[in-house]
Simulated assay, not measured.
Amino acid sequence: MQELYYTQTLPISLDEAWTFFSDPANLKEITPPHMDFVVTSKSRADKMYAGQIIRYIVKPVLGIPLKWCTEITHVVDKQYFVDEQRFGPYAFWHHQHRFTAVENGTFMEDILHYKIPFGFLGNWVDALFVQGEVQGIFDYRKKVLTARFPG
């Protein structure tokens, strides 16, 4: 299992950060365009809640569409939320999004645990491809957020 940790401080209030990141409609904006990310579920709530199911289609490899379904399993308003894969490309996916108000902004932490299926072969694919792709997603996100919320 991989454990990855990413941080970023944005020059926006905790309220603004929470509003942006807790809205699944904003996921497309912070996902690299080549992945052709589309949220396919319709939200029936005006705010995120534990038990919320979010469905996507993503094309991470050679334009091949993959269906992905996550559940928001934990939410503490303006502190953190957790999404866990229910169906999709990973054998395991657990992603914590944490937010802390700091002087002149919000400090964000992403703690990601994931595992690729298929045992030894999956470990090989992870080392050759997936780790770099995940790093690229977070690098892209950091660039987009820095441009969207300049300091």
Rank of each mutant, 00 (worst) to 15 (best):
R44E: 13
D15L: 07
S22C: 10
K143S: 15
A25F: 07
Y49H: 15
T70A: 09
F149Y: 13
Q85G: 14
T40V: 14
F21T: 00
F129H: 12
L10A: 09
T100G: 06
D77Q: 15
M48H: 05
M35E: 00
I64R: 12
R86N: 09
V144A: 05
A91G: 10
S41Q: 13
Q135R: 09
H74S: 11
I54D: 12
K28D: 11
L112I: 07
T7Y: 00
R44P: 01
P150A: 14
L10E: 02
H95T: 07
F99G: 05
A127G: 02
G132H: 00
F92E: 12
L10S: 02
L4N: 00
L14T: 03
P65L: 11
F129L: 14
Y140P: 01
V75Q: 07
E29Q: 09
P89F: 05
V38M: 01
I53S: 08
V134L: 05
S22R: 10
G51Q: 07
L66D: 04
V58Q: 05
T106S: 05
D110S: 08
Y56L: 06
T19I: 03
F118L: 15
L27P: 03
T31F: 09
K78W: 00
W18C: 08
E16Q: 14
K143C: 02
V125K: 03
S43W: 08
F99L: 11
R141D: 07
M108K: 02
T7N: 08
I111Y: 01
D139R: 14
K78Q: 15
R141H: 04
P24E: 03
L128F: 11
E29I: 10
D83L: 03
F21G: 06
Y49N: 09
S43C: 10
A127P: 02
L4D: 08
F138I: 03
V134G: 05
T31C: 01
K115V: 01
E3W: 00
I72Y: 05
V102G: 01
P150K: 11
T7D: 06
K142N: 01
Y5A: 03
I111A: 05
L62T: 09
T31V: 09
N104D: 15
Y6A: 00
V125Y: 03
A101D: 07
F20G: 11
Q8L: 14
F81K: 00
G51V: 12
G151P: 14
W124P: 02
S13W: 00
D46N: 13
W68N: 06
S41H: 12
Q85P: 06
Y80T: 04
T9Q: 01
P60G: 10
C69N: 07
N104H: 13
Q8D: 07
A127E: 08
M108C: 09
F129T: 06
H97E: 02
L4K: 02
A50D: 11
Y140H: 15
T100A: 12
